[in-house]
């Protein structure tokens, strides 16, 4: 563990550019209910709750800071299931329902209601070669891939909120030019925090436009 960025390092690195930047103005923002919780766009409320519980175990929050759930990875996935990841929507519906059914069968309670240790036990079970149900075969790997996208991807897509993902791994941020001295350094460069679509060079581009074949 000792290699993690210390809080002091983190503060030092972000001081020059201000604390974690606001989500870009042009970015998508999640629907929220009166309690401030995310309202899913593609999944049912139950399925979304299960998904939130899963991503929270794949890259968990711990004493060192927030994880995938806090970064908004579940909201990222839910929204992407309505566009770029639409082909995976049926897979998510079936997988999340099967996972909940498995939890009920084993414990009498929904997956999201279980404690972390029990959730991990079930996720390990379905991540083994012999998942108990076809809908769960390979499901953890699928969700993990998208959880990483939603934790470490550009905040424009709704994840990596407050740059939680980039802070977690110590990624110093986007920069249009890197100096020779930065390239050679064996410690950390100064951090910057912005979406690619906040950079003047790219702000007029729409990341979800199709490239036209004609």
């Amino acid at each position: 563990m000792g290699r993690r960025l210390s809080r002091r390092e983190l503060l030092k690195n972000t001081a020059a550019v201000g604390a974690a930047g606001a989500v870009p103005a042009a970015a998508w923002s999640p629907l929220v209910n009166a309690q401030g919780a995310d309202v899913p766009a593609s999944l049912t409320a139950d399925a979304f709750q299960t998904l939130e519980a899963v991503v929270a175990r794949l890259i968990p929050a711990d004493a060192n800071g927030p994880g995938a759930l806090e970064a908004g990875a579940a909201s990222y996935i839910d929204r992407a299931l309505g566009n770029a990841l639409a082909d995976a929507l049926a897979r998510y519906r079936a997988g999340l329902a099967a996972l909940d059914a498995l939890a009920v069968e084993r414990t009498g309670r929904a997956f999201a209601a279980l404690d972390a240790a029990m959730q991990d036990t079930l996720l390990h079970e379905i991540d083994a070669d012999s998942a108990p149900n076809a809908a769960l075969t390979g499901f953890v790997a699928v969700v993990l891939g998208h959880t990483i996208e939603g934790t470490f991807g550009d905040p424009r897509y709704g994840g990596n909120r407050d740059f939680i993902g980039w802070n977690l791994i110590g990624y110093p941020g986007l920069r249009l030019a890197v100096a020779a001295s930065d390239q050679r350094m064996s410690d950390l460069p100064q951090w910057t925090r912005s979406s690619a679509y906040e950079l003047a060079m790219f702000e007029s581009l729409d990341p979800e436009s199709e490239f036209d074949d004609d």
């Binding site: 563990m1 993690r4 175990r57 794949l58 890259i59 968990p60 994880g67 991990d120 993990l144 791994i169």
Partner: peptide, 12 residues
């Protein structure tokens, strides 16, 4: 490949 130990690994 996932979980608390994985989180610690990638953070480091």
């Amino acid at each position: 490949r996932w979980g608390a130990e994985y989180r610690d690994f990638i953070a480091d």
